[in-house]
């Protein structure tokens, strides 16, 4: 179980998180809510180990792998969609996940030649391919994953989120309201 005790984080003079107390389950879907600037992304980055909190302690993260779909797609510009996914897993898994997100015909295309929605799906395929290597020991973080997706691909994503949430902890931020009922909610606007 992941536990945050008295976690605080400031950037310069701006305090983003203050004395945050949080206990997250071992598996399930947790939605992180809050107004813009409430510290959702900062919390996710702290959980991923990309930021160090100024105060407080974190426990329960040891041994966890983090599959993170960032707000930006963060694809390597000089390599194909297939390689962008294969760097996180292997080529067989990369082909499978790209096909699963409807990109079976775009394996050899570089990010610059893909549309915004397609690039998003490559980023999702990378995260799910990485998570699939050891789902039980993975923390799946999805920061606005539905951005740029059409209804069909959004449905595929929802299905995958619910499936992974049965064996791993999935943290999700989403602006478009509730897509499906989460198992728990972290509301940062109240902290």
């Amino acid at each position: 179980m992941i536990e945050l005790t008295g976690v605080g984080k400031s950037f310069g003079t701006q305090s983003v998180l203050r004395n945050l107390q949080l206990r997250l389950p071992e598996r399930g879907l947790v939605q992180v809510r809050g107004a813009s600037g409430s510290g959702k992304t900062t919390l996710l980055r702290i959980l991923a180990g990309l930021e160090t909190p100024d105060t407080g302690t974190l426990t329960g993260l040891t041994g966890l792998r983090v599959a993170y779909v960032f707000q930006e797609d963060r694809l390597l510009p000089g390599v194909s969609a297939l390689t962008n996914v294969a760097i996180a897993a292997d080529k067989v898994a990369a082909r499978h996940w790209l096909a699963h997100f409807g990109l079976g015909d775009a394996l050899d295309k570089r990010p610059a030649t893909l549309s915004g929605g397609m690039r998003r799906r490559v980023a999702l395929a990378r995260a799910f391919a990485f998570a699939a290597l050891d789902e039980a020991h993975t923390l799946l973080i999805l920061d606005e994953p539905y951005t740029g997706l059409d209804a069909d691909n959004a449905a595929v994503l929802t299905q995958e989120i619910l499936r992974v949430a049965q064996t791993a902890l999935v943290l999700l931020t989403h602006h478009g309201g509730d897509v499906f009922p989460p198992d728990a909610v972290v509301d940062l606007s109240r902290s």
């Binding site: 991923a48 180990g49 990309l50 792998r65 983090v66 599959a67 993170y68 960032f70 930006e72 963060r74 390597l76 510009p77 000089g78 390599v79 390689t83 962008n84 760097i87 996180a88 990378r126 990485f130």
Partner: peptide
């Protein structure tokens, strides 16, 4: 920095980091 973080989280091998990120 965004791409450095990505390769760190996804545990990309040094050879792939070199080929896919640093060389280009």
């Amino acid at each position: 920095q965004e791409l450095r973080e990505m390769v760190q989280l996804y545990r990309v091998s040094p050879a792939n980091r070199l080929r896919g990120l640093y060389v280009p």
